[in-house]
Amino acid sequence: MAIIDQVKEIRRALHQNPELGGEEWETSKRIQEELQKAGIPFKTGFAKTGVLGVIEGNSEGGTVALRADIDALPILEKSAVDFKSKVDGKMHACGHDAHTSMLLGTAFKLQEMKEQLPGRVLLVFQPNEEASPIGGARPMMEDGLFDEFKPDVIFGQHVWPDLPVGQIGIRDKEMMGASDTLSFTIKGAGGHASMPHQGKDAIVVTAEFISSLQSIVSRNVNPLESAVITIGTINGGYRYNVIADQVVLKGTVRTYSQKAKDTVKRRLENLVKGFEIAYEVQIDFEYVDGYGATINTPEWAELVRGSAAQLLGEAALPEVDPSMAGEDFSRFLENIPGAFYWLGCSKEDEKAPKPLHDPEFFFDESALEVGIETMVKVTVDALKKLEG
């Protein structure tokens, strides 16, 4: 069986049997089986289900790490593919099945040409990427992922429906945003809806509070920087004629720079204090730091750009804006130089492709071969650069 056919079969099997973060036992088992069949040694037990494969070249040189995430999302699939998820409420809606199968395909090709490789390749299959703020990158490293072999550089790729198949998105610095979480519990005093003066209406306070939150970005963060504050859930109230005594809000903050993040955090704390005084309520506030911003190392981003241009042509490298979406790969980049890039995965003529995390997210499988060839090229070029 040709490698691309093998990779497609693996991808479809993984897509039909998605496992959430921390539960990827069968996915991990399949990865191990494929590595074993290819004659690639590996170690397990990193963050429970993580796997590390090792390909040794024929001569001393640098060490390149390649990473793929392996977990799925708690989403009920609504796509029309004939290999859709068999597990109700679980779906590979972020392309991690493609990432895993493409890294295996890359491993198969590199293993075939290992006699030509000047150095070592580490294959990092990471669990729990979707579970911010814990994630899987940090637990894997804490479990000794790189204790024996420390990478000189690390690369990761992510399918990207905003780009068609055959295109690569890469930036020299910011690729993805820091993803932090917020929670507010606004505690007022209940009462009868006809006598609001006897209570402290937590819903009215909430409405004012949410509006004020948005002024933090528009009037406190430098317009040349980026920040997003979004409240995703609001829960409060009992009945149409009861003054709500409590409302719980949950949301997220997205930034690229530490300066913008510090500004948002400080203003949030001050806003909470001000509302407590102005409305005579109590607001319990929690800010949880999640994944940091995914910041590429310029020299390795340039290598990816050069490798992709040689493989696919200059036209395959459009200028792209960074995304505010969070990515656990950031924690690898906090410790190791490297680059994270996007792999186009939508059909060329598709006007409105379904986005990541959508129940109808669709991945064009013709991107599998592009992803494998790009990762192989990037790896070989990086090893040559390290050798030099």
Rank of each mutant, 00 (worst) to 15 (best):
G62V: 03
N222S: 12
V159K: 06
K8R: 15
A207Q: 12
A301N: 00
F275M: 07
I154R: 00
A339E: 10
E130H: 09
E34L: 12
S330V: 11
Y291A: 10
E276A: 11
V288E: 13
R266G: 05
E77M: 02
Y238H: 14
G119F: 03
G39H: 07
D364T: 01
K48M: 11
D5M: 08
F340A: 07
V54L: 15
V153D: 09
Q116T: 13
K173F: 13
R12P: 00
T206C: 12
A260F: 04
S179K: 08
K29R: 15
E33K: 13
A293Q: 04
G177F: 02
K200P: 02
Q167A: 04
V7H: 00
D201Q: 08
V242I: 15
M1Y: 10
K114P: 09
I170Y: 02
M176W: 11
D284E: 15
G177H: 06
D358Y: 06
Y238N: 14
G306A: 11
R267D: 02
A309H: 04
F42R: 03
G61S: 09
E23I: 07
E148L: 12
P359F: 04
L20I: 11
D201E: 09
L383I: 01
K150G: 12
A207F: 07
L343C: 09
M195T: 13
T27W: 00
F362S: 12
Q32I: 15
L311I: 06
N335E: 15
I4P: 02
E77W: 00
A308E: 10
Y291V: 00
T63R: 05
T106Q: 01
L386Y: 08
E77A: 02
D289R: 12
Y291Q: 01
F361V: 03
I154W: 03
Q167W: 06
G236S: 09
F83N: 01
G344D: 04
D358R: 02
I234C: 13
S59F: 03
S218P: 02
E23C: 13
I70V: 14
P359L: 08
E350W: 09
E369I: 11
V165E: 02
V281I: 13
Q258G: 13
P127Q: 06
F332K: 02
I372L: 05
K384T: 09
K354P: 05
H197F: 14
A316M: 11
V51L: 11
A382L: 09
I243S: 01
A293D: 04
L182P: 04
I243H: 07
